[in-house]
Design a protein around this nucleic acid. Structure first.
Lengths: 242, 242
DNA sequence: CGGATGTTTGAAAATAGTCAACCGAGGTGG
DNA sequence: CCACCTCGGTTGACTATTTTCAAACATCCG
């Protein structure tokens, strides 16, 4: 188990570090690590869970389902993202989370969340910040799905995921190990699989990106931003995590 | 100006009340009230604002725009809902908010938000709760826009707004004064105005609801829930507000 | 009596979904 | 070793949904 003092997330430039006291609290809060295999659920909608999780490594995605099997992917979660806050507050889990690759999670029992609020104003603020950020991202996705056309949406999601991965140092020579399938993309964008595929093909031919063998590389982000009508996330200096 | 001690929101059964100390803080926090005319903006995307607002009366809606004018309504805000938290945390406003009717707002300068986090763990928790609830609602909307068909979406939005209004005691004989236009609905659901209208017509003929002269009445919520594939919000006992 | 809004409708055009098939890369078991 | 799966990706033809365009209509208001 990774000791908090040497938590890999703390080393990433885009994440804010803890004070000594905060680090001590987090350290005492963490009860262990949990590993989830690719394809398994980390959290299931409507099933209570007593923990919060921070992703230490791997990819996951949050989604909601309709009874008949249709599902909407709400967002993807990468290293440093917090999972399960929703459930800790709403009392019940409002969406599922599935591992896209093998995932290692830092386990934080939610019972002590209230304690954190009593002791550390800064960290409490961070938790709220994370919730607000999630809301923000959902808003961007909703804007996409509600208003953008097919090419725009596809360009948007590629830019988003690629950009977030870059902030986490996940690129090697501009190439990103990309575990997302076209089926995932279609459930994210609200398109059928076939239509997603055809849109990807046409966009690919413009030379804006390469995607094969599970690796994604954006070759012309400028062009993609034009297509998407989207100007990337503001390069928010440092973000918190737990 | 309404004194906090007699704040109308506190009298609504579905809102949790303050402790004496909390009330005193909120009272000292509130610097006044702001009235916004129907059709005016309360907050504008990317324009900073130094306040948080709680809606004391009226309807508003949050939305994001694309450069070419398309807009996506993210959610509606009613009495007791908090506006501007996003901006207070993200540093910049990530969406606009427009008044749908004349709106009266309770003004809370965001400069003191950090102070609240230091002094009142309970209220800080509430703020986070509100952010998480907003995230939750956005998730439900995203599921709708991404996966539900036209009839389903329309049924969903009617149920949602009607249900939220009921919790706030806004119904008279089952009738709700409904300031939303079909144009708003279409920007919420991601449909063109024409298509929204036609879908409404067909749904109306099933006798599930009446909507005319700015009043909405749901006659068969059971049927609408069936159509929407949606089972309403869990009747969460008491929710916080600021 | 105009304007300005908001709603309603029909018809044509564009977009997206469904069905059906095929390809290629792993993996597994006989 | 190869037959046979499964999974993810790809494609064409056809169908359905949704948008766009255009025109009315009704109400409110100055």
């Amino acid at each position: 188990m990774t000791p908090c003092a040497r938590c890999p997330i703390r080393r990433l430039a885009s994440f804010r570090d803890f004070t000594t006291e905060e680090l001590a609290f987090i350290k005492s809060w963490k009860t262990g690590e949990r590993t989830v295999r690719a394809g398994e659920c980390i959290l299931r909608e409507n099933e209570p869970d007593d923990n919060l999780y921070t992703i230490l490594s791997g990819w996951a995605f949050k989604f909601k389902s309709l009874e008949d099997g249709r599902r909407q992917i709400l967002n993807y979660a990468l290293v440093g993202d917090l999972i399960g806050l929703q459930g800790s507050l709403a009392g019940t889990t409002t969406h599922s989370v599935e591992a896209l690759t093998d995932v290692v999670l830092c386990v934080l029992p939610r019972a002590r969340l209230m304690e954190l609020f009593g002791l550390f104003a800064g960290l409490s603020f961070d938790v709220t910040w994370l919730a607000a950020r999630e809301e923000w991202m959902l808003g961007e996705y909703l804007l996409s799905v509600g208003q953008r056309g097919a090419r725009e949406r596809v360009a948007f999601i590629l830019l988003d995921l690629y950009g977030r991965a870059r902030k986490r140092n996940m690129l090697r020579d501009g190439r990103l190990a990309f575990p997302v399938t076209q089926s995932h993309l279609s459930d994210t964008l609200g398109f059928s699989l076939v239509h997603t595929n055809k849109t990807l093909q046409r966009l690919r031919q413009s030379g804006a990106f390469k995607w094969s063998d599970g690796f994604l590389q954006l070759l012309d982000e400028e062009q993609l931003r034009d297509v998407a009508n989207w100007s990337s996330w503001p390069s928010a200096l440092e973000r918190p995590f737990l």
